[in-house]
Design a protein around this nucleic acid. Structure first.
Lengths: 207, 207, 207, 207
DNA sequence: AATGAATGAGTCTTCATTCAT
DNA sequence: AATGAATGAAGACTCATTCAT
């Protein structure tokens, strides 16, 4: 979740973080492939050598940037809606609706970031696909908590497979990424999608 | 100079097709980035120069290959289940189930092809994202025909937004691509997903 | 001994040779390590890409250059004194004397070439050491022909081990390389060495 | 600043020696070029900065290491056979034979060290060639003592040029380095060489 | 005297594209 | 229309050395 565990010197950790943030900015701006190490170090204001003191190669920093990005994205989308907060089906629907809205917001605010994480990153590496799949698994577990809590409180169906249901909810959530990839989404369209997607999602899990 | 539409000479069209098929094989095998023009021309048995007589550049042939690939994938997944074939909700569910199974099959049989189309291609270009989004739109329209037919025959809800519902169904369908990206899916797991996804999908649209 | 056997197109062979000659000049001038591919291609008047069309990498052309150099060196030193030419021990001594003189000549004329082959090349690679050892083996075989002919004609001792004797003669020959490495050799000193080395060599093999 | 002669503080001298020994080990193991300053300081357990307090640069420590190495090698080869020890031609031959055997031993025991001194070092620098030539001169003078002693005692020819004869003897000795470079030498081959080389050497100088 | 993080010049190699034949 | 040798821009990475602490 945070620093590579054993970086006792805070100055080193700080510099490492600077580099990750610089790379984050550069990758979000130009994409991983198009970005050069030169861009990263210029953005961070350090030399090439320093970069290679902290990361073995360009590919290596990507892992750190991806963690950083995904963390960032998840926070943005989840906001205050923690699992277990919803006590009724209406509140559950409201949460899902909120997630969709915030995802639309991020897509509008930082389109390159989402593109980077969801479109470019999987294409870089077989290993990175696995890594992202892992992150998706984490996300799925998180979603599972929402579902589980709903089943316990009785407003979600008890006979569903919670894990797969979570994956379905995520799939519906992510469908707006594909939508946004087609171009800017007008406010009305956006609201139409938020509602229809929420309806669809709720129908799939509601008691 | 090399527009697909105006190739009166059938020999030229044939050679063009040979190149597309060679590129298809090469991209499916190594991915777009890793593949070199050298690989394509070697596979097609022609020279570099010939390649550039038919396509302006490496990026240019990708469009043709992508059309070819998507066409191929859609055929594989749709099989015989044409829109309008389902007359009852049970048949509709059976169709969706069949789509899922065939998608799992393709993922198992040609994993690199699916990866190429769904993971790598979107990362190449902003233009390609648009293009793929367009193809997704086509797919969505196609799905819409299924939904529309269902609504007309009364086994699907009349108050749903058919377009968005189609997108939802597709999103659920594609969720298995993400699943498969995490590693090979055991037969039992596969069946579990086929069933749960179908249930979820049907719940969202059923009358 | 000559071209890599299968280069049917004479233009390709010519260009290859141009590159080898350029590399030969550059390596002899600056040494292998200090020389850049950029130096070679500039000297040859071609682009970087062309270089890599003919040789996989900088290390690869070294083999060709080394063959070329050694061939060149051997020719210079042997001159007209072919094996079997000597019919008496005096003629044998005269041959050895001539080899020494011509070696001194080459050392004076092309000191960097000798340095390159005998001092720098062995340091580059374990593989190159083996390769040079192999070339030394060839040289040893060649020397063996001189010894063998001498034994047959009776002016060299019959009880010597001809192979090892050849190696000894070569070692004595090469001792002048070490001598020359210490600095320019005055004419008088040179003659002293020619005579003393010849005496020593002849004493070791004469009947 | 870091001259070997003026180090009054014994702790400084000790640390300097530690560094030289570390570099010796590292160079003998990986060669000069492949070895990094990082390897040396890690082996010595000090920091980069400390290294540069004792030596101006990587090249600078090489001189010290070379002296150390050559000293080591010479001791190994000479063993107990000091000049003047041989009183007869048979004892002289026995000494030469012993040198050869011990050289074979070292080549087997520490092949990288010999390679480093004899193959790699000369390739590094023009200056180093001179330096090694100087060391070779020392060696030659040492050999000269053996020859001189033999001439005085009458078992070696009086009309030879003792200096050049010494160089010849060294050249024959070193020919086994070239031999060993071609690969491991079988015991039988080794003995054949020891004998034949001794015969050849003795023939060149014996009265 | 010691530390070690920072420096940055230097170099090989790839590959899409061109064009003379 | 076909060939394929030539092009050259672009970019990742190394490592000896420095200097603030």
């Amino acid at each position: 979740m945070s620093e590579p565990t054993a970086s006792p010197d805070p100055r080193l950790a700080a510099r490492r973080r600077e580099l990750v943030e610089a790379a984050y900015a550069v990758f979000a701006d130009r994409g991983y492939r198009a970005a050069g190490v030169a861009d990263i170090v210029k953005h961070a204001g350090v030399s090439h050598g320093t970069f290679y003191n902290y990361f073995d190669n360009k590919r290596h920093i990507l892992d750190a940037v991806l963690d950083y990005s995904v963390e960032h994205l998840i926070e943005e989308v989840i906001g205050e809606d923690r699992p277990g907060a919803a006590e009724t089906s209406a509140e559950f629907a409201a949460q899902f609706r909120a997630f969709l809205r915030r995802l639309f917001d991020v897509l509008e605010r930082e389109p390159r970031l989402v593109e980077f994480v969801m479109l470019e990153a999987p294409a870089i590496d077989a290993e990175l696909v696995t890594r992202l799949s892992g992150l998706f698994g984490t996300l799925s577990s998180l979603t599972n908590e929402y579902v589980h809590s709903g089943v316990e409180r009785g407003y979600l169906r008890g006979d569903i497979d919670p894990q797969i249901a979570s994956e379905c909810l995520l799939a519906l959530l992510f469908s707006v990424v594909v939508l946004a990839a087609r171009g800017p989404v007008a406010a009305a369209d956006r609201e139409r999608h938020v509602n229809a997607l929420t309806d669809f999602a709720v129908a799939g899990v509601l008691a």
